[in-house]
Nucleic acid binder design. Sequence first.
DNA 1: TTATGGGTTGATATAGTATAACAGTATCTG
DNA 2: CAGATACTGTTATACTATATCAACCCATAA
Lengths: 171, 171
Amino acid sequence: MTQTTPRTSPQIAPSVGFDRHDHSHCIADAVQAAEDLCAAQKLNFTPARRRVLEILLERHRAMGAYDILEILAAEGLGAQPPVAYRALDFLTSHGLAHRIERMNAYTACAHPGEDHVPAFLICRLCKAVAEAETGLEGGRLGDAARATGFVIEKVVVEAEGLCPTCAEAEA
Amino acid sequence: MTQTTPRTSPQIAPSVGFDRHDHSHCIADAVQAAEDLCAAQKLNFTPARRRVLEILLERHRAMGAYDILEILAAEGLGAQPPVAYRALDFLTSHGLAHRIERMNAYTACAHPGEDHVPAFLICRLCKAVAEAETGLEGGRLGDAARATGFVIEKVVVEAEGLCPTCAEAEA
DNA sequence: TTATGGGTTGATATAGTATAACAGTATCTG
DNA sequence: CAGATACTGTTATACTATATCAACCCATAA
């Protein structure tokens, strides 16, 4: 069985930030930043981990673990699910990538090393994803938690809607 | 094969609101509210849909689709995944239940018919879930979206942490 | 040097979550 | 009655994720 199913993208997603920019060296920058971060924290930035981060940066969109795995397999870096999941676990647990819960997908972090509360804007048509900031949800969520005695450790914020391009096309 | 796997709950989850209350008639109230809402909108509140809502209300916790299915099957209401997923689709799309993305789980809505932006407080130990309010994320997320031209249609907010009970036990 | 241990990788198997597709049934309505 | 619509029953399959165990690498200490 040759697996020809189209696993992703009804339409092709544009860039993550909804803006065009010179993408060529922002990959290199991000990889360098990851490298520095790993060196500083004595983390093992192995080829598989590095390559997965590169893939996320290159595609610059949210990708499923199996999309990534397909690429890794084509490059001879491993063909079994754990290969992808292990690398993604590493990247997400060290703040180099994020998991988008709504999509079961992963994306490179736009602000590695900054210890932030990311919020994602997800286009329901083209699946493009932008990473924004929420400022720690200090507001009503924090109040609600405090009122009940709940201790917040991590917050996920994901908004679904239409990116500028698709919103225009829709109109 | 008799399927004895324990699919859920390392520990048993207490109530959703992290507070004790007379739960006996809040189920009846909620079902009645759902009934009214469906009548008003000419929706078909079928036995399966009603029963799934009741199950969510009775257990008063986030449940996986297969947990629900197990109960439906035991009651002779259907044993195939679509049975549960169809009912859950109906309930979630009409605001009677919510999906908790982080957990691949579902929970009855605490404020049906109010068109709100729910925020969930999820205990990572006992898996209890409380539904709070965010007030539409008017803040930084809205700003970010407006700045980029993104049109928000739906927002998911999920916080993971420790509920009062588990936080205390932890200390 | 060898032993030990921690962390990583390779590989197989399986678990858990969700949907496609199609046939059947009920109900409404023209 | 015919046709449309919506729901249910059922089979099959797709997609997402993890458990497990063996092998390997390499740093460090006996």
